[in-house]
Every structure is written in C-alpha cells, then in structure tokens.
Design a binder for these strands. Structure first.
Lengths: 187, 187
DNA sequence: ATTATTTTGCATCACGCGTTGCAAAATCAA
DNA sequence: TTGATTTTGCAACGCGTGATGCAAAATAAT
C-alpha cells in the first residue's frame, strides 16, 4: 500500500528521551533531535507531530518505564521497598546510563509554564505515582502519619534528584539518601 | 561631568530578579525585562552588561539577600534555627511576594549547562551556604552524624522548594516540612 | 556658553528557532 | 506495470531573540 517507515520507533523515542532528559525541553533543538536519532526532522514530525507532542509522547514513555520498575519494587510494599529506592543512589550506574542527569520529570518542573497543560498533568501524575507507592508501603507496615511521611519521601527524593542534576553525579545524593533510610527505619 | 542615570539601580535589579525568578533565565526575554523595569534595553545593557551578566548580578544579589536573613536566623545556631526555616512554609506570604515561584537558585539548576561557569559557581555557593548554617546548628546542639544530616536538610529543603514551584503554592510543602521538623526534633 | 561625557530611544541587525511545501523516492496491492 | 499512498530530504519561511549603531538629549564642570 505505502512506503514503510525506515526507522525503529522505539529506538528513536529512546534517543529523543535521552536528549530531552539531558538538555530539557526548550534547549533541545530540532536539529539536535535529528543528530540524536539519525532521522530527519521531517520524518520525526511526520511520525510524532510537533516538538511539543514529541515531548509529551516521551514523557508518557518515561512515566511508563518508571512505573513498571516501581511495580516490581513495591510488589509487596514494605519499609524495605522504600529503602531500596534510596539505596539506589549508592549503586554504581552503568557507563551508558544518564542517571547523572537527574530525573526527566523533576527537571521538567521548571519548564512547566513554557509548555502545555498535558505536560504539567504528566509531571503531577509522576509525582502522584511515587506518593502512592510510598504511602502503600507505609500503610502496609502500619506506620503512623503515613500520608505526610509519604509526601516527605517524595520531596526528599526530588531534592536528591535535583542535587544529582546539580552535581552531575548520582553519588552526590548518597549522604541525603542515607539519612532518609535511617529515618524510615526509625519510624 | 556627564548625564546621570535616570533610574534607581536597586529598584531595577529587584524587578529584574523577580522576572528571572518567575520565568527562568532563558524564558525571560530582553523585552520582558524592559516591561518589568520600565527601562529600555539599551539602558539596561549599558548599565549592567549583557543579559547573562545581568543574571549573574541578580544571582549575587539574591545570594546576599538570603545570606543576610540566614545570619539572623542562625545568629545563635540551634535546632530551633532549623525549625524556623521549615516552619516558614506554614506562614502565609504577603500578596506581593513571589515565594510561590520556589527558589531562584533551585530553579536555576536546570539551566546550568546553558549558562556560564560563574553562574554554576553561585548556585553551588548558595547550596554551600545552607549546608554551612545547618551544620553549625547541628554541631552546636551536639547532634551526631551532623554532616550527613546537614546534607539531608539541604536536599529536603530543595525538594520542598521544587514542590512549591510545581504546585505554584508555598503551602504545598507544609506536609514535607512538618515531617522534617519532627525528624530534627527526634535527633 | 562651551565642552566633555554619559545616557537614552529608535531602528535595525544577524542568527537560530520550529515548522512547512514540494517533489522525488519507495513500497505494495491490483 | 500501474496506481495509490506514505515517507523522505532539501530548501526555505516567518518569527522572536540578544545585541548594536547612531545621533539626539541631558547633565555638570570649566
């Protein structure tokens, strides 16, 4: 019927995600996307719409990825699940990872007013996802003041990720993470 | 000898600071600065240099402002000083304040690679300022593991400010702040 | 008044941005 | 092969950006 697409959508979206992750929405130019994906901008726009729609698609993908990981970690929600999250900062990252760029969603917070409502909604959804999981773990372990403490954990996590972005180094958040782990243990 | 400047430098820098605070460095255009200050861009550039230099000047000003406040709060550093910081989220803000925009320095983290080294250095200095004060308070109160805990407090504070920016509402960080206050009390 | 010096407003510059028009190329059912 | 349909690459567009050239305006010492 028609000419088939010459590139792998998943691979391209991953490359786009990394580009946005590293540089943010605004600072990532369409020319950079071309270079990162190896696909002409005409092809990208034809397949995924505008730059903003592309960003939206990528955020959805990011949310889905993390969500899948969280479902495993919090499969049986306990204090230990929370501990695993913050222990993650101490684990060395593979050389090809970009965990040193912080978190795509956290980084996006500062660009909210420059993007659309759908994007704002996704950042909020991401935050809500974390809170839900933390809350489940605290509740399952019968910990008091669970709601406020879940909110606290989300905030601490975002502070850690912000610090990672600032330092350009995942390990920079280890001291913070350690105190959080101790605090959770003490609840 | 020469024609005197027609505007008040302090007032202008305050207006510029608010503009950058609200929208970030990149998203604040020179035209917006004109409107915010009532001064033509030619006047601004003539007085303060380029947009980047202007941002640098404003960051320095911001750092100095907060530093002065911290010196008061931590004049006699104790647990209570730390408590005051996080209790601040519960205090209603005057209608003209822009505390709902989070913190200029925290917001700037995401723009670091798009600006120069001097700006990166100032953000780091700001973070170091907070850590120093927290550390002094913890040490003065003879609290163990002071260094890590000071790091933790900075991270928690930045997470809170990031949340404020996301919600556009200072009160959004209250649950987090309350847990931090309790935690500090328990040390 | 004259002169030296700085500020100011206007118009404008070159540049990079996101996006699109268009026609050639590629595919596959008929 | 034909024809319908989609993708692709090239060039280009309009727009907003940070920054500047220039001359008029404003000051204060001489």
């Amino acid at each position: 019927m028609a000419r088939p697409r010459a590139f792998d959508d998943d691979k391209v979206l991953d490359a786009v995600m990394i580009a946005f992750w590293r540089h943010g929405f605004e600072a990532t130019t369409t020319r950079m996307l071309e270079e990162a994906t190896g696909v002409g901008i005409r092809g990208l726009f034809n397949a995924f719409g505008s730059k903003e729609q592309l960003f939206e698609t990528v955020l959805k993908r990011y949310l889905r990825n993390i969500s899948a990981t969280l479902e495993q970690v919090f499969a049986t929600p306990t204090r230990g699940s929370i501990d695993m999250v913050f222990a993650g900062f101490s684990q060395p990252e593979p050389p090809d990872a970009i965990a040193h760029a912080g978190c795509l969603m956290v980084n996006t917070v500062n660009e909210l007013e420059r993007t659309n409502d759908a994007i704002r909604a996704q950042v909020n959804a991401y935050r809500a996802l974390w809170k839900t999981q933390f809350l489940a773990a605290l509740t399952a372990d019968g910990i008091a003041d669970a709601d406020n403490r879940a909110e606290f954990l989300v905030g601490a996590l975002w502070g850690a990720l912000n610090q990672v972005k600032l330092a350009g180094n995942k390990a920079a958040a280890i001291p913070l993470a350690e105190v959080v782990r101790d605090t959770v243990k003490s609840w």
